[in-house]
């Protein structure tokens, strides 16, 4: 067990644990926009910056992203010092200029006292803040149908060549894990459209309710070993079947 000083308080940490996790466990709030527990940290939004120093650094300190910085014995961390606050505010101003309609951005900007963005605001700006949660989710957890393409200000999230992807299984995980709801999709009845590809959602064998897409069911069967038959029945009908089995057992 190691020990760090977090905002003036001694805190026990496991070696290698990331500072963000330590802070959250201690009830200290650190803003993030690109952090998602299901995927590895990326350090893209830079909002989780904290100031770290050590006694032997003789007063020198640096700003590091807490989502990626491993806790190590003797580290002195401040999560809301003046330089931290100033840099976070500077980053939020830049995000406000890009995505003024993104709810979490506006909320954080308000918290950090940004009344007016110092840069020209793109009022019709893209809600996508390139946090890369969707791409990390898709690439690391699902089928890797989307990726970050191009670079710099032109960077965006897309399928290869921005064409309907053969890899996409229509699970909507990208859109639903997006913190700013920036990925458009349609999901009506048995039709689902995302990334330019339209899927048919399999209807429940029992009642006809939508379940998952045939593509997703095939992927789950293949990669997770869960039979497709079970998947294409809705939860209520499955429960009813379970009930019927109980009733039979009881008799």
């Amino acid at each position: 067990m190691s020990e760090i000083i977090l905002n003036g308080r001694k805190v026990k940490v496991r070696k290698g644990e990331f500072l963000l996790a330590v802070a959250r466990r201690e009830g200290i709030e650190i803003p993030t926009l690109c952090q998602h527990d299901a995927v590895e940290p990326a350090g893209a939004c830079r909002l989780c910056l904290v100031e770290v120093t050590r006694p032997e650094w003789e007063g020198w300190s640096k700003l590091v992203t807490s989502c990626l910085f491993p806790a190590e014995d003797g580290l002195i961390v401040s999560t809301d010092s003046a330089p931290v606050h100033k840099t976070r505010k500077g980053i939020l101003e830049l995000l406000m200029a890009r995505s003024p309609n993104a709810v979490p951005v506006r909320e954080l900007a308000r918290q950090y006292g940004i009344e007016q963005c110092p840069y020209p605001v793109q009022h019709d700006g893209d809600n996508c803040i390139l946090c890369d949660i969707c791409t990390r989710v898709c690439q690391n957890l699902v089928t890797g149908a989307i990726s970050r393409i191009d670079r710099g200000v032109g960077k965006r999230v897309a399928t290869p060549f921005a064409e309907p992807s053969t890899d996409c299984v229509g699970c909507l995980a990208c859109a639903k894990s997006c913190p700013t709801a920036a990925i458009p999709y349609e999901d009506e009845g048995l039709r689902r459209t995302i990334w330019g590809k339209t899927f048919e959602v399999a209807s429940c064998a029992g009642c006809g309710a939508p379940t998952v897409t045939a593509e997703q069911a095939a992927w789950i069967e293949q990669s997770k070993g869960v039979s497709r038959e079970d998947q294409l029945v809705c939860d209520r009908c499955k429960a009813q079947k379970t009930a019927a089995a109980y009733q039979k057992l009881a008799w």
Partner: peptide, 12 residues
């Protein structure tokens, strides 16, 4: 040439 991954470099 900025890769566009982080906000300060891309937007700043």
């Amino acid at each position: 040439e900025s890769c566009g991954k982080c906000v300060p470099c891309r937007e700043g």
